[in-house]
Amino acid sequence: MQPQMVMYDEEFQQISLVCERLAKEANAKVVFLVDKNGQLIASIGATENIDTTSLASLTAGNIAATGGLAKLIGEKEFSILFHEGERDNLHISIVGGRVILVVIFDTRSSLGLVRLRVKKASDELNKIFDGLMKKVQVPGAGSPFAEITDDDIDNLFSE
């Protein structure tokens, strides 16, 4: 079973900074960070015309499917996927075995540059997530839902 996924303000700010820097240094249009279950963690750049929820879910599905393929041929996982389009390209990579980094870029950048910058950003993200996981395991970092009542749940459905 996977550990409980949690995000706090502090780490979110750090993650956003790394993603912003990556977008800038790689000349990318958009940078997304998605968890392996398909939930969006952060998105940076020209995201107005992108359905980010769908993108997150499909990216996770894509990684899950290629991960399944990898196992079939005796690989642990394919840590980088690259999809080339007519205008935009998609660079997908797994960070620290737990989150997925998606970079969308066009001809203003190149695969080589994106690869290089992704590598650097991945190391930084990895450190942040390591810290985050430690924080989550601390006892007392309990769920904010520990106090919810049956009424709270009922209210959710009454609207």
Partner: peptide, 15 residues
């Protein structure tokens, strides 16, 4: 596994 996001104050669950 549910994802509790304190930053955006969201909880995500998978059914």
């Amino acid at each position: 596994m549910s994802f509790i996001n304190y930053s955006s104050r969201e909880i995500n669950c998978k059914i």
